[in-house]
Design a protein around this nucleic acid. Structure first.
Lengths: 149, 149
DNA sequence: TTATTATAGTTACAAATGAAACTTATTTCA
DNA sequence: TGAAATAAGTTTCATTTGTAACTATAATAA
């Protein structure tokens, strides 16, 4: 007879809570690396990353790739265009379709933020040994594959 | 010479992104288990969990325990009181301090939601073997300990 | 004592987010 | 054809969230 049979749910040991707690701290710390200094939101930063590695994609493609709602994508791109960091035209073949690219300013800012962000990830990964790293990779893949299917 | 030395940051393989992606899906699915049926938000649900296992605590204690901002705690409790799920009085020793408890209705709803939520966690944990479970536990502890210190 | 500081909780305002409706362009197919 | 359905992107409005300021009470210390 368990002592806490009427009390099975303890937040501190509940997997979704533990994950959420860790994730929120990491996301907050990451955002601090660029949000204030460059006046860029996490959504906007994700778009910058995506356009850096995938030039000439559309808003829909970007959103699909990083699993971001189309309204959020639209807003982020609008802001980035206003800030002069992203250049948007509409495709001549399909005039609904946007064609997005980083501007020179966008690339500059991207290359300023990138090392900060990678540095933070490295600081996390550095505390894990090779074995733990591959376990983490495996667990994330397994859980993610399960929840999405 | 790496092929993508100008392209080191790929969101899909970036640890914070992968964590955030997994966490968001899990949080969303969990919330679906109770939000629509019982008209309860994730914040409110966390308060219910906390008051179930820790009766008579104050708003500040609840917030500290589940690492929730005091404004969010205040709002969640306000809503829960309005819904008649939580009872709030102020301590006679220190009249700033609230003393919170689930009402009978609150306990009822808690015990309806709890198995749904535990069932979802179980469905996640079931796909991992014993070894993987202990790895996950270890990794979460290690990473969480690192980011909070 | 009483002036200062600290704490618990709430309120108010601004910014972020989400869902639905909308506009324009393209595709489908009767 | 051209009417209906689909797709890309934007706008609107309601809700949520975050920050700062505020109220009331209690603790500290001059």
């Amino acid at each position: 007879m368990s002592d806490n049979k009427n009390n099975r749910l303890v937040l501190e040991s509940f997997l979704p809570y533990r994950l959420s707690y860790l994730t929120n701290i990491i996301s907050r710390k990451l955002a601090q690396l660029y949000s204030k200094q460059f006046d860029i939101s996490p959504h906007e930063w994700r778009i910058l990353i995506t356009l850096n590695s995938h030039p000439n994609i559309s808003a829909a493609e970007a959103g699909e790739r990083i699993v971001m709602d189309k309204v959020a994508v639209s807003r982020a791109i609008k802001n980035l265009c206003t800030m002069g960091l992203v250049h948007k035209i509409f495709s001549t073949e399909d005039r609904r379709r946007s064609v997005l690219n980083l501007t020179e300013d966008g690339k500059d800012i991207y290359h300023k933020i990138e090392p900060l962000v990678i540095g933070y990830e490295d600081s996390l990964l550095d505390i894990l040994d090779k074995e733990e790293l591959s376990q983490l990779d495996h667990l994330l893949n397994k859980l993610t594959g399960h929840v999405t299917t």
